[in-house]
Nucleic acid binder design. Sequence first.
DNA 1: GCTGGGAGAGGCTTA
DNA 2: TAAGCCTTTCCCAGC
Lengths: 246, 246
Amino acid sequence: MDLTKVCDEILNSLKNQHMCIVTGECFVSYQGRAASKLPKGRRLLIIKADSSVSIHENRLVRPTNYMTNARTSCVVEGDELKLLSKNKAKETLEIIFYTIEDIHTYDLPMGNDLRLSGSEKELNDALMDDLSFLEPGLKPINQQQAFRTGVCDIIAEDKDGKLVVIELKRRQADYGAVTQLKRYVEQVQKLKNVKTRGILLAPDIRKSAMELLQSYNLEYYSYDFEVGERSKIKGIGKSQQKLGDY
Amino acid sequence: MDLTKVCDEILNSLKNQHMCIVTGECFVSYQGRAASKLPKGRRLLIIKADSSVSIHENRLVRPTNYMTNARTSCVVEGDELKLLSKNKAKETLEIIFYTIEDIHTYDLPMGNDLRLSGSEKELNDALMDDLSFLEPGLKPINQQQAFRTGVCDIIAEDKDGKLVVIELKRRQADYGAVTQLKRYVEQVQKLKNVKTRGILLAPDIRKSAMELLQSYNLEYYSYDFEVGERSKIKGIGKSQQKLGDY
DNA sequence: GCTGGGAGAGGCTTA
DNA sequence: TAAGCCTTTCCCAGC
């Protein structure tokens, strides 16, 4: 194909925020936080309206190479088409096409239309509606309370008036979840100067994370949830049941 | 476009492990670990040789919807084209096309050709070659020692014969890096029953992570590295310099 | 081949 | 701009 025409089509696409896809034999080189090279090979290039650039091989969902928030130039040099993308961090992605097999431009909207259900935030809201099934007398005080070192999911008060920090996870809890809860509990304790409980609520927990949690004297409850238009917490299991499994 | 022809092209593409891209107006619905809907809109579909399916909007590197290791069927129903992908976890991704604007099939290799440099592993190797510039008399004992709760980057012995656990990060260290190091130090201490030092080595560290590290009596050194065919550690900064900045 | 565990990077949100 | 954190993750080691 005529490289000059291809080059013009890419530049127009960039200017007009169209989606542009190019197929052909290319070499890719990335220099930045890491460095990588893709030897000469036939691949797919996608340029999008937000000036993100991706190189796809014929496998996997994620692109092999990519750059976001890039400024991209495109020039013909001899019988090669050179694309050079740079971002603010001075990283560079260079794509050299030796042959172009196909190019297409699509004027697609930039819309961000995904409606997601079952996110942690949604489960959090469901939980705030009624904490009592977690433990009788448990009352929510505050949701998404910001601390200096993060945002705590829920703060509640138990039937004895003791403060309870609740960290909710939508998947198996790991070390990170436990240390996160630990930090929040410590901060609340320091701030309010009262002994505070910490509850980790997750569908499952890794064995070693469970051990860490116990060593910190934190509590764990498992739960089931159902995703739908409005996701729901289906049931709570005692951490003791979980412990028995080990 | 003729939906039956499009359907055949997609089915052929799936059978022959070609890459297939389709543009058109579609509705997408996903049910699985989470649930999501994409209302009617014009988007790009990519089907790859590993039977991964992705829906791209005209923004971002990552697809809006996707499924890997999917079995995908494709049928025409009235004036709609329906793709249904399922994976082993019984998740489903349904894509309904109302209009097809464009379809292309490319016989691209499935190759996995990326050559990456500057990975944490590579820096780890570079560091193992010579630890003395970190601190005189520091000698590596064991690399990537597997613990039950993770892989510790490097264990060394300082000039006084004290054990040193070194955790290497290739980007800014956060809470996770600090708590990770803390766990390793505690494990080594318990295992060998000797007082053990912990050193975090990263290009940068978040202020609050630094405070946590100090409260644990761990040490931090910053470093510069250069990525290339064989990545190199360029220089080490004392944590004290870093502290002075705050 | 499947699974459990750990580590990580894009993208979003708030300060 | 920076920090925190969530995620339809990804990879690897072990079985």
